[in-house]
């Protein structure tokens, strides 16, 4: 990767660059202040009073202790497995669609249709799916209906990730590969896939996270399935003793997500 140092130019004069970077700093603070507060409170003996002291590992200990652990580990596993399935399914589908789009004559309307789903309110989609599938088609809600709403939710984002690379892809390279003796399959494996890989990785990563964090659609589609966001939501809105545990659990999930992001960024950046 070639890094350049850019001189300020055009709109970006020295003072406006200063403004931009201070706004950037404010945004970072706004983003991370509540999260840092939460992490801090997870070590507090009385988190509900909002005071970080006295300091304790009590909640972390309770989390892994037998009785409580069984409550959140199964939602975590459910969320991870749905996340992985959604990630693979939406990336594969997006790859199929995204490879076809550049060869279509009129693709704008189609793209708008795919991407519009992003702006629909999540609750609405959840209710619609519930009504349509359960009331109209008589299907039972459960693991696969959650998978379905998550898939619908993640697909447009996957498609965006994939389109960025497929629209830029030079199809003449496939002619060259074929000319050198490559079958359609080898053309895809040797030439197309490696060049589309940044988009594929981004799609896998984002669709997993979208599914992993999804709540509003899950509320209606879940049947009796408990996902991690649903568990955290119910636990934190009840007046049970578990509320304190949620601080610790959220902190752990946060750190893990952060690590996953870091690894994903590494992989994405490595390929030019």
């Amino acid at each position: 990767m070639i890094r350049r140092h850019y001189q300020p130019a055009g709109l970006f004069t020295r003072s406006s660059s200063l403004l931009a970077s201070s706004l950037g700093m404010i945004a970072i603070v706004l983003l991370y202040l509540p999260i840092a507060g939460l992490a801090l409170l997870s070590f507090s003996a009385q988190p509900l009073r909002g005071i970080p002291w006295p300091f304790t590992f009590e909640w972390y200990g309770a989390l892994v202790a037998g009785e409580t652990a069984s409550k959140w580990i199964s939602p975590l596993l459910t969320s991870i497995s749905i996340g992985i399935l959604v990630s693979i399914a939406s990336t594969a589908t997006a790859l199929l669609i995204g490879r076809a789009v550049p060869t279509l004559r009129r693709s704008t309307g189609l793209l708008v249709a795919y991407l519009c789903v992003i702006v629909l309110p999540g609750i609405l989609v959840g209710v619609a799916v519930l009504l349509f599938y359960r009331v109209l088609l008589g299907l039972t809600t459960g693991f696969w209906s959650v998978f379905l709403v998550h898939f619908i939710w993640a697909l447009p984002f996957s498609l965006l990730c994939i389109l960025i690379v497929t629209l830029r892809f030079d199809r003449r390279l496939l002619d060259a590969a074929e000319d050198l003796g490559a079958s359609k399959f080898r053309q895809f494996i040797d030439i197309e896939l490696p060049l589309l890989m940044p988009g594929v990785m981004a799609s896998l990563f984002f669709s997993f996270l979208l599914s992993f964090n999804e709540l509003p659609r899950t509320l209606y589609a879940r049947g009796s399935v408990v996902t991690l966001p649903y568990y955290v939501w119910t636990a934190s809105s009840s007046h049970s003793s578990q509320v304190s545990l949620i601080y610790a659990l959220s902190s752990i999930i946060m750190v893990l997500s952060f690590l996953v992001t870091l690894v994903a960024m590494r992989i994405l950046n490595k390929r030019e």
Binding site: D175, A176, A177, E178, D179, G181, A182, P194, L195
Partner: peptide
């Protein structure tokens, strides 16, 4: 015969080298 089975090869005007 499809292109990948013909023993001819092309040098394209735009080279079409594989960038990766």
């Amino acid at each position: 015969a499809p292109a990948n089975e013909r023993n001819v090869s092309t040098v394209f005007q735009h080279f079409a080298l594989f960038p990766h």
